[in-house]
Simulated scan of single mutants.
Amino acid sequence: MTGVFIAQRGRFYFSIIVCTALLLTIFVLHVGLGSVYISPWDVIRAIVNCPAVEYQRWIVWNLRLPRSLIAPVAGGMLGLAGALMQALTRNPLAEPSLTGVSSGSILGIVLWLIYVPNAEKYPYLLPIAALLGGIGSIIIMYSITNKLKDGPFVLVLKGIVVSAILSSASSLFLIQNNDKLPTVMLWIVGSLNAKVWSDWSTIWPWALVTIPLSLCCCRTANVLQLGDVVSIGLGIRLQRSRLSLFLVAALLTASAVSVVGAISFIGLIGPHIARRLVGHNAYRVFPISMLISACLLLLADFVTQVASLVFGNVASGLPVGAITSLFGAPFFLYLVSRTRR
């Protein structure tokens, strides 16, 4: 038994080192990729303000670094949210969109664009509108779950219902104001295009709060995965514990969606790969899920940029959500087939 524990701990630390190294490698390559290619060594020199050529420092700091920072942070937050939802529901097919927050964020953007005069002139305020919409959906979910002793299935079912209602509301508003559709579509699919430092300023304070908060939920997540009877026997208050995990997952999702949009499948794939690597212990799954999901979103955005360079105008402005859906949908079908067996 001791040997198994040592082996699992060694595999966890090895996974941390490999995932971190992979993330840093993709990050440097991501910053260097563009119409003006910058070598990895020159990227590092530009980041530390010792550029080989002055224009490289300007390109890196003003055009590329915000996008390259936002991608792994948003991906890590979605991965943590997915791990929380899967632990809460004891279902490997659960993902952050089940909180209803993604739909609430989209509705916030729609209402902002329609009812705020000259909203297009203030694009840097769009993430704030999305965040307010996501927080609004969290309040709705809290109000309909706080009074009932909901099990995991009922909690997820309510999230799906709230998500459907909010999505329908967005559709009704867009039907009457279809000129706003092109802008909203980027948020519905999820995109990292044209991200600037103001977007980074929106996401990092939330990441600083929600990521440690989610890592503090590891013990509760481990106990909830043992089942209701065992959890009660160990002194866990089921309703409060489920609601706390749900709210933390919703906050993580709202923060990420408010900047990058409703990117799908990242919060599903990352935790699944993490469990295959380090087992089901939340103390190991949560940090590995965060790192893997960060790598996945950064890599997906790297693919969109390569496609834009190779195919030119045909793939110009390709949203990263299209890539995650393209590869995530087959992965989801694979998980469904394994679950049925």
Results as ranks from 00 to 15, higher is better:
residue 222 N to W: 10
residue 222 N to G: 10
residue 223 V to D: 00
residue 224 L to K: 01
residue 225 Q to A: 14
residue 225 Q to W: 01
residue 226 L to Y: 01
residue 226 L to K: 02
residue 227 G to P: 02
residue 228 D to I: 09
residue 228 D to S: 14
residue 229 V to M: 12
residue 231 S to P: 06
residue 231 S to F: 06
residue 234 L to A: 11
residue 235 G to I: 11
residue 239 Q to M: 14
residue 239 Q to H: 15
residue 239 Q to T: 15
residue 240 R to Y: 09
residue 241 S to D: 00
residue 244 S to R: 14
residue 244 S to A: 13
residue 245 L to R: 03
residue 246 F to D: 00
residue 248 V to L: 07
residue 248 V to D: 00
residue 249 A to G: 12
residue 249 A to E: 04
residue 250 A to E: 04
residue 250 A to V: 08
residue 252 L to S: 04
residue 252 L to T: 08
residue 256 A to T: 05
residue 257 V to I: 07
residue 258 S to M: 10
residue 259 V to A: 00
residue 260 V to G: 04
residue 261 G to P: 14
residue 262 A to R: 11
residue 263 I to A: 06
residue 264 S to L: 10
residue 265 F to E: 05
residue 265 F to T: 08
residue 266 I to L: 00
residue 266 I to H: 02
residue 267 G to S: 02
residue 268 L to D: 03
residue 271 P to G: 05
residue 271 P to N: 07
residue 271 P to Q: 06
residue 271 P to K: 10
residue 272 H to W: 06
residue 272 H to G: 07
residue 274 A to S: 15
residue 275 R to A: 06
residue 277 L to R: 11
residue 278 V to K: 01
residue 278 V to E: 00
residue 281 N to R: 08
residue 281 N to W: 01
residue 283 Y to K: 13
residue 284 R to S: 14
residue 284 R to Q: 15
residue 286 F to E: 02
residue 286 F to P: 04
residue 286 F to L: 15
residue 288 I to W: 08
residue 289 S to L: 12
residue 291 L to H: 09
residue 291 L to P: 13
residue 291 L to Q: 14
residue 291 L to E: 12
residue 292 I to D: 10
residue 292 I to S: 08
residue 293 S to C: 05
residue 294 A to E: 02
residue 294 A to D: 09
residue 295 C to M: 05
residue 295 C to L: 05
residue 296 L to T: 10
residue 296 L to W: 07
residue 298 L to M: 14
residue 298 L to P: 01
residue 298 L to V: 00
residue 299 L to R: 01
residue 299 L to D: 02
residue 303 V to T: 11
residue 303 V to P: 00
residue 306 V to G: 04
residue 308 S to V: 08
residue 311 F to A: 15
residue 311 F to N: 07
residue 316 S to T: 12
residue 317 G to H: 06
residue 317 G to W: 02
residue 320 V to F: 11
residue 320 V to S: 13
